[in-house]
Design a protein around this nucleic acid. Structure first.
Length: 231
DNA sequence: AAGACATCCAACCGCAAAGCA
DNA sequence: CTGCTTTGCGGTTGGATGTCT
């Protein structure tokens, strides 16, 4: 795909600037998109005054500049959703991101790699650190995020390895991701006490039900992203 | 206090799919 | 139908920062 790889990919040959974005570049990009709208990224790169590839412009906008992006740590609800949807779909970061308004696929991907996928199971270390600072069992009750009508009740306990273990979890996503037309056909695949999702036709081939055993079984054996529950 | 190690996160790369002439 | 262009996605890298020993 050589044609493609140079739509800007090997940008250096075309003199595209690389590396961290400056506030001035951010402003140029934001102003241009506010004026002309998203899309047509090659035009953005040509006419915005930025010496950046369209690809780079798109990435910067989508992951950093786009209005409505949430900054800061993920909430326990969001973590739970990521874990569950990853068990369902594997590394379909953009699909998972649709269920987390304000979060980007890149952010979720980074989060997952940092917490669940790295070599020495840093999550365990982190959990251990956390565990040292609190009781053996902690109950976290999260109220609904009214904006997105997600409901999560998470009970966090610790096993003997100080892993955090969800002992009861319910996620009920009743609102399709914003701007996602395909969710119009969402339907319910499973019912309580199993994890309850309303998901689209795309995943109709997935198992109808997922038990917490399935979920956590796959969770602790992540070297193969497609292990555990498969679609 | 300093070096080693871990974590976070922005950004890049390559590939595949979608769109279009 | 075919080939080219554009867009989006997932994997990976590297610098900055935080934490541990």
């Amino acid at each position: 795909m050589s044609s493609l790889m140079d739509w800007e990919g090997s940008g250096s040959e075309q003199g595209w600037r690389k590396g961290p974005w400056t506030p001035e570049e951010d402003k140029l990009l934001t102003d241009y998109i506010n004026l002309h709208g998203e899309g047509r990224w090659t035009s953005v790169s040509k006419f915005s005054g930025l010496n950046r590839s369209g690809k780079s412009c798109r990435l910067r906008w989508v992951n950093y500049l786009r209005p409505g992006l949430k900054k800061g740590n993920l909430t326990p609800q969001e973590e739970g959703i990521i874990i569950e949807l990853h068990a369902l779909w594997g590394n379909k970061w953009s699909t998972i991101a649709r269920y987390l308004p304000g979060r980007t696929d890149n952010e979720i991907k980074n989060y997952w790699r940092t917490h669940y996928k790295t070599k020495a199971r840093p999550y365990q270390r982190q959990a251990k650190r956390k565990a040292e600072g609190r009781n053996h069992q902690v109950q976290v009750q999260q109220t609904a995020d009214n904006d997105h009508r997600m409901k999560t009740d998470i009970t966090v306990a610790h096993d003997d390895d100080h892993r955090e273990v969800n002992t009861s979890e319910k996620v009920d996503i009743t609102t399709p991701p914003q701007g996602n037309q395909e969710m119009a056909n969402h339907h319910q695949l499973s019912s309580s006490p199993m994890i309850n999702y309303y998901i689209n036709e795309e995943v109709a081939s997935c198992p109808d039900t997922i038990t917490l055993d399935d979920l956590w079984g796959s969770f602790w054996n992540m070297d193969d992203p497609h292990n555990g529950i498969r679609c």
